[in-house]
C-alpha cells in the first residue's frame, strides 16, 4: 500500500522525498517546471514585450517539463518487470480514456460554447494525469 502511494505521488513530481538522487532530481525538475510556468504566466500578463520574446517566454516551461518527463521515463525503465507492466497498463488505459474525455469536451463544445475565461482546453491536462494515476492505482491493485 505504501509503495503504491509512493508510486502515485512519485509520478506527479516525487512529492515524497526518498534517499534516491534520481528521485530528488525528478522532484527538482517538477518544482522547476511549476516555478517557470507561473513566472511565465506572470511575465506574459504583466509586461508588454515584443511578440518573439512572448513566444520564447510562453514556451519556456517546456524545458523543465521535458527534463521532468525524461527523468520519469528513466525511473520507469529502472523499475523491475512488474512495475513496468503496471505503468504500461496504466498508459494503455489512460491514453484511450484521455481521447474519450477530449472527444466529449469537443463534442459538447459544438452545442455548449464554453466560457473561455472559465474553461479552456489547456485546463484539461490535469484530467489526463488523473486518468494515468487512476490507471496506475487500478492496475497496481490487480497485482498486489
Amino acid at each position: 500500500m505504501l509503495y503504491y502511494m509512493h508510486s502515485n505521488l512519485y509520478l506527479i513530481g516525487g512529492l515524497i522525498m526518498s534517499a534516491s538522487t534520481k528521485d530528488r532530481a525528478t522532484l527538482a525538475a517538477f518544482i522547476a517546471w511549476i516555478v517557470v510556468y507561473f513566472a511565465c504566466r506572470w511575465v506574459l500578463d504583466h509586461t508588454s514585450l515584443p511578440d518573439w520574446a512572448r513566444i520564447v517566454i510562453a514556451l519556456s516551461p517546456i524545458v523543465p517539463f521535458v527534463v521532468f518527463l525524461l527523468l520519469v521515463i528513466a525511473s520507469v525503465r529502472s523499475m523491475d518487470e512488474l512495475h513496468r507492466r503496471v505503468h504500461l497498463e496504466a498508459l494503455a488505459f489512460a491514453f484511450p480514456a484521455s481521447v474519450v474525455v477530449l472527444m466529449v469536451l469537443g463534442l459538447l463544445q459544438l452545442v455548449i460554447p464554453f466560457n473561455q475565461q472559465r474553461f479552456n482546453f489547456r485546463d484539461a491536462w490535469p484530467i489526463l494525469w488523473l486518468l494515468y494515476l487512476g490507471g496506475v492505482s487500478f492496475t497496481w491493485r490487480r497485482y498486489s
Binding site: 509503495y3 523499475m79 523491475d80 518487470e81 512488474l82 512495475h83 490487480r142 497485482y143 498486489s144
Partner: peptide
C-alpha cells in the same frame, strides 16, 4: 526484483 514482484508471483497474480 522488488518484494512486490515476489509477492505477486507467489500469490499467482
Amino acid at each position: 526484483v522488488s518484494r512486490q514482484t515476489i509477492n505477486a508471483l507467489e500469490t499467482e497474480r
